[in-house]
Nucleic acid binder design. Structure first.
Lengths: 270, 270
DNA sequence: CCAAAAGTGTTGAGTATACACCCATGA
DNA sequence: TCATGGGTGTATACTCAACACTTTTGG
């Protein structure tokens, strides 16, 4: 990569290598509607268009760290990450539905606190490498999915982007690059994992009612659920812990629950 | 990336970017035992050690194509690939178990022939980016899994490697880089997908007996299967086509079957 | 006729689904 | 007291797992 030799066009092409980027589809619930966070690009091939936040991977950097760094630049998330041990994040291989045996943690900077302190979920999705995905240069992108429990945790978007906004996943604006594909990929993964893991824990606040959990599933999976059957199954899984407290509102109070474990478990949720 | 400016060490580090490679775990059955193909490295950090075949992605090249090119260099596979349309290969997102909706084909150079002409299965697994995975330089590797129906199709290994050999997956030699991790990942994916897709079609010859199919499942999943239950389920799926012919051997002849579709289907195989 | 592998059904247990009414509260 | 959302049980259909003997051939 040291280009001390003659800089002929042929040599430049031969030496040129694809660049490596990460892009992260960040999901959160806003009033039980699933939204993802988009930024408006200032420059590059898609200037003016919306995209999922991302950027080039640095030399010596873990992919997960690059995703977190770019997410932080776009959202202010992970501000606490380097200072505390609070922000857990896992890139795992819960691929398919093999139970314990397929569970792995990779490139993990810090151990995931088993409790409820971890602030975001991060998982590698797929790597998109079509050279034409960016018409200006060959950028290979490792796509991530991230989940947070409150869209309000996103403070501001740095000067890197023209704007940042939450969009309902069913009504995204036209996206730059191949990000429509990336977004579809992330949504499919989220839907699949909701049904056989407890990742819903990362989309919900520390305490929630059963109705909220059910509404999340019904909304994200876009199909109605039978309340009694759903409750029975989730209860049988033992993942939920009743908090004993009640949420009082306009009508009959609802019991509050939390997830007993926030670490990812392989469970039949549906 | 044009380094016409002063070549200070600081600038070099700042400009340095991770390199991008592909590595492919190639599986095949030899006497119903699952084996994967390893090459012995000549140079680099793992010289002398065994590894899955792979190499750097070229500028402008699809990731799938890079995987095929490196596989071809190591095995002679895909020799027919650029000339004919015969070699189908799909990199899809059959992640989780959503049915049709999650089925996608990405970066696919040629359309997959729906028949039985396709010669190999290729699927992206995961991208490994730990900077320490190669102690000499930061190489990010997109891992692939490939399946072929006959290990004898691997002819020779090019001069790039010191040797190439099939190893039983349960008895791999020490591997270079993080390839032990990559191999485990591939095996988990294969096991998972056997149970909910028809990828077994790519590991078996054009015609096979029911006993061979069952033995494949029992061996790869490392658990015994009930012959009657397995047969009933597979038959009910409608994926198998009885050929009407028989294989004669030492004992009672066995009916021969083929897969009706070789394109990947989401089906409960177990 | 014997050894070896191929082929074939039934039953019982457990799981998934469909379905409707009463309860507790705030307004 | 009424409107609203919270909470609960049962009957049935279906799916999955366990299980053993007969058939066909070559030697």
């Amino acid at each position: 990569m040291t280009a001390a030799a003659a800089d002929t066009p042929a040599r430049r092409v031969r030496l040129a290598r694809p660049r490596l980027a990460v892009d992260t589809v960040l999901f959160a619930l806003e009033g039980e509607r699933l939204r993802s966070y988009l930024v408006q690009l200032k420059q590059g091939a898609g200037a003016g268009k919306w995209a999922f936040p991302g950027g080039l991977v640095r030399h010596g950097e873990l992919l997960d760290d690059a995703a977190r760094r770019e997410l932080a630049a776009a959202t202010g998330l992970y501000d606490d990450w380097r200072s505390q041990d609070a922000a857990g994040s896992v890139t795992d291989s819960l691929d398919g539905r093999l139970a314990e045996s397929s569970f792995r943690r990779i490139s993990q900077t810090r151990s995931l606190a088993p409790g409820l302190t971890s602030s975001a979920y991060l998982e590698q999705l797929f790597t998109f490498g079509d050279p034409s995905r960016d018409p200006l240069e060959h950028v290979v992108s490792v796509a991530y999915m991230a989940l947070i429990d409150d869209p309000a945790r996103v403070r501001a978007c740095s000067g890197k982007y023209a704007a940042g906004e939450w969009y309902e996943v069913s009504a995204l604006p036209p996206l730059a690059y191949d990000h429509a594909l990336v977004g579809g990929y992330a949504l499919n993964r989220l839907r699949a994992k909701l049904s056989y893991t407890n990742i819903a824990a990362y989309l919900l606040p520390p305490s929630f009612t059963f109705a909220e959990l059910e509404e999340l599933y019904a909304n994200v999976l876009e199909r109605p659920l039978d309340r009694r059957n759903f409750r029975r199954r989730v209860m049988a899984s033992g993942l939920l812990r009743p908090l004993g407290r009640m949420r009082r509102g306009a009508h009959r109070p609802a019991a509050l629950y939390s997830f007993a474990q926030r670490s990812v478990q392989m469970i039949e949720m549906l």
